[in-house]
Write a protein that binds this DNA or RNA. Structure first.
Lengths: 232, 232
DNA sequence: CCAAAAGTGTTCTTACTACACCCATGG
DNA sequence: CCATGGGTGTAGTAAGAACACTTTTGG
């Protein structure tokens, strides 16, 4: 039987919300194929390495971010025979969600790494290398739908955050506007979503906002609603 | 760079509902490792074959079922270094949902293929080969949660089915009892879930039931509720 | 004072639960 | 007639949508 004929890589769709925009970490390819094109960061899985460990290693190499502040999950595998002209490569794509980092990709291995708006990269004109456009689209769709039923939005926020900051995450990722008052009630009323720290902040203009930490829930019940039913 | 060091396989968690039980297709291993143990059907991805094509090929080889009556989706990849004692094998697991087939695995390649209750195989005592217990558990969890928001239950039914047959699928997969009257209203009232054929049948005892086909929706809105809120 | 953002209260409406009730068949 | 399951009606309740209103800061 045919064995050991594949290369296996992990690719990362690393998303963050910065400047009220959903952004993804991309690297400029310095060598063919797709030289000069943007690509998702990634690399080969090592001989004795688990897939998730490989993804974690790549993530630290590319961003220098502490793993405890990151959400990382497997997205899916892409192994179309023609996806890499150099040979048969199956990639296990992962989705990572990060807070907006003050340090711009500190300790980064890849000199050319940049945060770019997802919107720009998903338009048909500015194509990503390989099938990374498909992977990115799948990653964004996964993030969008998972915000509905998992307390994932906090992964885009610093350790302590306000309800308004959390709401901005939803608005940016979903591309919708949400009623601040109903959102506030919904989030604070869903058990395990957020825990108040007792502190306040006045990062914004008006009345100081209370600060919250992520709660211990893994599933939101009831779920957040992305498409409000039209009320006739 | 280390390249071409991996074998890549597809494994299939093929689920069906038969005798009011959730069952999975398993094959008895005839050779070491795990000789004599049950395993999920699967095989190597061919040199020029897409992952989904490989899964489809294996599915037809194992079940002989026409692809148009099957739901097939990628579940996830499993590549722990020690998962196969013979070497480094990454498997891309897939989830398949089938109606209860009258012909018991006709045209099957694997002589030892059998439908076994999922419940039996997930208990700690009767272990599956490799990490197939984990894969099966993930597959069942995926099927359970996806029944909530996708019109997937129809994949377990013949092309035309009654609402009661559809309800049995939910009850068996979720392990719960559902109110037949509310279920009926919910299903027929969710746009795109089912389309009436105009025909009736009297497969059961009492009043003849109308027959339905699967609708064209891909997402159920509102979703089916797995855990009815406790009404205080 | 006003502006701005945080947070609460209230009303309307959707949609789920529970269960009474009727319908259409076989025996 | 009765038994069995199919299907409808309806009351009560949980929770979202819309939006008026109050609170707490800065200027």
């Amino acid at each position: 039987m045919t064995s050991r004929q594949f290369s296996v890589t992990v690719d990362l769709a690393v998303l963050t919300v910065a400047d009220d925009t959903l952004k993804v970490l991309v690297v400029r390819r310095g060598v063919p194929p797709f030289r000069g094109r943007w690509a998702l960061p990634g690399g080969f899985v090592l001989a004795r390495e688990d897939l998730m460990d490989a993804a974690r290693r790549e993530l630290v190499e590319e961003t220098g971010v502490p793993l405890r502040s990151v959400h990382l999950e497997q997205l899916g595998s892409y192994g179309s025979p023609g996806r890499d002209p150099r040979g048969r490569v199956v990639t296990v794509a992962h989705l990572a969600l990060l807070p907006d980092l003050p340090e711009p990709v500190a300790g980064s291995d890849a000199a050319g790494a940049e945060w770019r708006p997802v919107e720009d990269l998903l338009s048909a004109t500015r194509r990503l290398a390989f099938d990374h456009g498909t992977i990115l689209a799948d990653a964004v769709e996964r993030a969008r739908s998972k915000l509905e039923y998992a307390p994932l939005a906090a992964a885009f926020c610093p350790p302590e955050f306000t309800i308004a900051e959390l709401r901005r995450v939803y608005e940016v990722v979903w591309g919708t506007e949400l009623d601040p008052r109903n959102f506030h009630r919904k989030v604070t009323g869903t058990p395990g979503f957020v825990e108040p720290t007792g502190e306040s902040t006045r990062r914004g203009g008006g009345r100081p906002a209370r600060l919250y930490r992520a709660g211990d829930a893994t599933l939101l019940h009831p779920a957040m609603l992305r498409a409000p039913h039209p009320v006739r």
